[in-house]
Design a protein around this nucleic acid. Structure first.
Lengths: 206, 206
DNA sequence: TAGATTGTTAATCGATTAACAATC
DNA sequence: TAGATTGTTAATCGATTAACAATC
């Protein structure tokens, strides 16, 4: 399947479209046009159609898109049509908050296990999930065939723990530590840099 | 000051440069080249020099950049040379985690106050910060001349609370709720969409 | 059929990278 | 001076938007 290159921007917009389509679905809207989907989001309707065009044809000319069909198709494109299992590594305040984060469960994402190195935390339950010692990560990852880790350890530890995760078989890391991670090229890395988002707001106010 | 348009990407990269320069500063490195700063970050050295060029000249040809000077200059450019006060609105797990988030304090950002509407939470202390009722937000914002709010309420409430913040005089919002906010054009909005970052990793694995 | 809206190509826009004169 | 590295211009690349034929 000679998949054309699809930009991360396109993928993230598709998730935004999904959320918005769910709103229409709940309201009972059956058919929607590219303009209806995008005008409120501040996105160009051409961009919506272009984004979809990477994956096929989903609409009827002169008519629009069937909300249910389109939503199901988009979810399947991202890979959200069935539950996705991820682990959380580092159960400080942020990690603990992410374990119960409704934005993840809404997307069909399930936190399978949580890990820490601090014996104070190990055995504690967070949202019915027992915190395990980090040394168990490899066996849990292998047993459940988990590919994605959410990394919430302090910046100083992040590289070391990321290396450990890669060694355990993790293929993708969502990194919340405000530091750059040097990882093998075959590992996917997304950084959520909350401080730099806030910093960019501070700059704009000047 | 006919400031050229500066992209958000440039601003976020400058914050990344700051973090990395601080590492060099701690190690006692005095002089650094554009290549030294960028090679490990996987950024092109031209990009670094181009990013800086929007704001002036900071290096010596044939020599490089003075680490201390450059770091101070960059912090001043972003607006981080003095403490910046922000408020956190919505003290669920995520909001509570952000109140103690070291990534913010490292950038000289101070959480001045935290708000919620839930009487169970009001009066509780989080990291020595008392949670206030949301109805007090306007007086706190005005009194302390606060311009930035971090919004951590559930998606369903986000628009309503954002409108309230704008009414109270807030000029910039860092939104963690996974929903689109429709705000006046003069209000700056940055979205941290953790779920879509995770979704884009899921897609890449396919 | 006439009007509407898609899917896709072409045009535009902006961001990244390469190249190089300036200069330490 | 010779070598190194900046600051900036020009070339490249990719993403967004406009335009329009296809077609419901």
């Amino acid at each position: 399947m000679g998949k054309k290159h699809i930009s991360p921007e396109t993928v993230k917009r598709i998730i935004v479209y999904c959320r918005y389509l769910e709103m229409f679905q709940k309201k009972g809207v059956k058919i929607i046009s590219s303009k209806d989907v995008t005008v409120f989001l501040g996105i160009n309707a051409s961009q919506f159609r272009k984004d979809l065009s990477f994956f096929g044809e989903f609409g009827k000319r002169g008519v629009g898109y069937d909300v249910n069909n389109l939503l199901n198709s988009l979810k399947a494109i991202i890979g959200l049509e069935q539950k996705v299992q991820v682990i959380v590594v580092g159960v400080g305040k942020l990690g603990a908050a992410l374990i119960g984060y409704p934005g993840f469960s809404k997307l069909n994402i399930e936190i399978t296990a949580a890990f820490d190195k601090d014996f104070e935390k190990i055995g504690r339950k967070i949202e019915n999930l027992e915190v395990l010692h980090i040394k168990k990560v490899e066996s849990v990852v292998k047993k459940n065939n988990i590919k994605i880790a959410v990394l919430c350890v302090p910046a100083e530890e992040a590289q070391k723990v990321a290396d450990l995760l890669v060694g355990a078989g993790i293929q993708s890391i969502l990194n919340f530590a405000p530091t750059y991670l040097d990882l093998p090229k075959n590992i996917y890395l997304n950084n959520v840099d909350m401080a730099s988002e806030l910093g960019s707001l501070i700059f704009k106010l000047k």
